[in-house]
């Protein structure tokens, strides 16, 4: 819990995938961060954390993008992203890039230390308890790998969702197993990725839940895309959309006219 006279200044890193594919997650995040007492800003010069280049082995491009992220965000008290994957890239992996560059390494360490995934930030740093959120449905939860294993995001979303009126949670078998997204993996090895996400979709359907929640748009888009292709009725939302009371719009891969 933060006990400070002035609200913490948070630089919001929307992440490239939420920016492009699901802005609603970004706006839900802003709403929650403000409700939690943060002074939030959205720096204009942000693009991507560099993870696609990093995971493709292109360290030079990654380093360039990492420097950009450091320059843009180092002035804030915290950097918060609605993604365990992108937050973990900055927090856990940037260190590998500047091993031979002491000046940048120091700036990098400072930034990494104050970078958070949003759900763990809301709970662990801001001790936030959602007020008045409600969702009428039965949901199951997928723990995305980077958030879970690099950042220890597991209990926080469940605790936050526990305060949402009308929402019932049911367990998902294999909740901590990869959905097959893997960033560029899903298009480099489409048939393998498909085999994994088919299995995941079957397990999601087997829960009987009407909603799937998670904390990473990449994984959610993969699972929603597969569920949609299978003709499933399961609705897929990012956790912040439900927490912010902004899951009234179309679910991922569902048409807007359902509104």
């Amino acid at each position: 819990m933060q006990h400070r006279s002035t609200p913490p200044r948070v630089g919001f890193f929307v992440t490239c995938i939420v920016d492009a594919m699901r802005p609603n997650i970004g706006f839900a995040s802003l709403k929650l961060l403000e409700a939690a007492g943060c002074d939030v800003e959205v720096p204009q010069a942000q693009t991507c954390c560099g993870q696609p280049a990093f995971n493709s082995g292109d360290d030079a491009t990654t380093r360039d993008l990492a420097r950009q992220v450091i320059e843009v965000f180092e002035g804030y008290d915290y950097v918060v992203a609605p993604s365990g994957s992108c937050a973990s890239m900055i927090r856990s992996h940037y260190g590998e890039l500047f091993a031979d560059d002491p000046a940048w390494a120091e700036r990098q360490r400072a930034l990494s230390a104050k970078t958070w995934e949003i759900l763990s930030f809301l709970r662990d740093v801001m001790d936030y308890h959602p007020q008045g959120a409600s969702y009428d449905g039965v949901a199951t939860y997928h723990d995305s790998c980077s958030g879970l294993r690099d950042l220890g995001v597991h209990d926080q979303p469940r605790a936050l969702l526990g305060d949402v009126a009308g929402l019932r949670m049911v367990p998902l078998q294999g909740n901590d197993e990869c959905c097959g997204f893997g960033g560029t993996f899903c298009v480099k090895y489409p048939s393998v990725s498909n085999a994994i996400v088919e299995d995941k979709a079957a397990k999601i359907e087997a829960t009987g839940a009407d909603t799937l929640l998670g904390g990473d748009m990449g994984c959610l888009m993969n699972m929603a895309g597969k569920l949609s292709r299978r003709g499933s009725d399961v609705k897929v939302y990012h956790t912040v959309e439900v927490l912010a009371g902004m899951a009234d719009g179309p679910a991922i891969c569902k048409p807007e006219k359902m509104r």
């Binding site: 594919m21 899903c186 996400v197 929603a224 895309g225 597969k226 949609s228 292709r229």
Partner: peptide
């Protein structure tokens, strides 16, 4: 390689 197996959401 994406849409062969799954849908993309409408932005």
């Amino acid at each position: 390689n994406w849409t062969r197996h799954r849908d993309l959401p409408q932005p």
